[in-house]
């Protein structure tokens, strides 16, 4: 955590909320009637969406939907997930 730069910290929020939705979704697949889990899923999906928008505003698109019309085609720019920034 301590060695994270500003970009990575913002991305980490997306990863945290994204992980919560992934994990809860797996749980719901075998417990589809669990209302508590379904409420949690909706909460974390919203949180992930918000975190994604925060990140994309500053560092570019995470998905094709995240492309900002004013900045042009930015999909090929920026750091790819396996790259280490020097």
């Amino acid at each position: 955590m301590s060695r994270m730069n500003e970009r990575e910290k913002l991305l980490y929020r997306v990863q945290q909320f994204g992980f919560m939705t992934d994990d809860i979704r797996l749980f719901l697949n075998t417990h589809p009637a669990c209302e508590e889990a379904f409420c949690a899923l909706k909460y974390f999906m919203d949180a992930e969406k918000e975190a994604k928008e925060d990140y994309e505003k500053r560092y570019g698109a995470l998905t094709l939907e995240g492309i900002d019309g004013c900045r042009g085609y930015e999909w090929i720019d920026g750091v790819w997930p396996w790259e280490v920034e020097e």
Partner: peptide, 8 residues
């Protein structure tokens, strides 16, 4: 464009 969990 992200990993499920960070690798650095």
């Amino acid at each position: 464009k992200k990993l499920q969990y960070p690798v650095k």
